[in-house]
Nucleic acid binder design. Structure first.
Length: 156
DNA sequence: GCCAACGTTGGC
DNA sequence: GCCAACGTTGGC
């Protein structure tokens, strides 16, 4: 079992959108970076991931999702109407993949990026690395537990 | 294969 | 809006 962190811009697709989907389940698609794609393909049913809001007023970890379907060819890559359409995508040799995730819970409170940065215990968390832009990253079990503990404490 | 130009991401 | 950090593109 591996823990992950999934990044999304709330203006495009936020935790409210996932909550509004049937069964709180939806495709995590549109990933167009090879390294992130490789992480997506390593996700297994039952793995859990933090839902992280990026590129917004208060970037923060806001919830927990569970992988309910492992990687399959990303349909948006083949859809000319999709903003994620890849003209070079070949259905016989898929390059891009999606997984399905289900919303497990919202955190008791959002844990902001500023808080994460202030925690020495989170040294090495990939999202905190300078210049990191990957939308899918693994999270060490100790980091996972630490962030959960932060979410249960009052906001600083 | 090199690398400059350009586009995107995303925090601030 | 600014800008650093990357990724991609395309000429050579």
């Amino acid at each position: 079992m591996t823990y992950w962190l999934l990044k999304s811009e709330p203006a495009t697709y936020g935790i409210d959108d996932l909550a509004a989907a049937p069964d709180g389940t939806d495709a995590w698609d549109g990933v167009r970076n090879h390294q992130a794609r490789n992480f997506l393909r390593a996700m297994r049913v039952g793995d859990r991931a933090f839902f992280y809001h990026s590129n917004c007023r208060r970037p923060a970890v806001v919830g927990i999702v569970e992988v309910v379907r492992e990687a399959y060819p990303d349909p948006t890559a083949f859809d000319p109407a999709s903003p994620y359409h890849d003209p070079r995508a070949d259905p016989r040799r898929p390059r891009w993949f999606a997984v399905d995730v289900r919303l497990v819970e919202r955190l008791p409170r959002p844990v902001t990026l500023a808080e994460l940065r202030a925690e020495p215990a989170l040294e090495g968390l990939l999202i905190l690395r300078r210049g990191n832009r990957l939308s899918v990253t693994p999270v060490a079990p100790a980091h996972w537990a630490h962030i959960l503990a932060m979410a249960r404490r009052p906001a600083p």
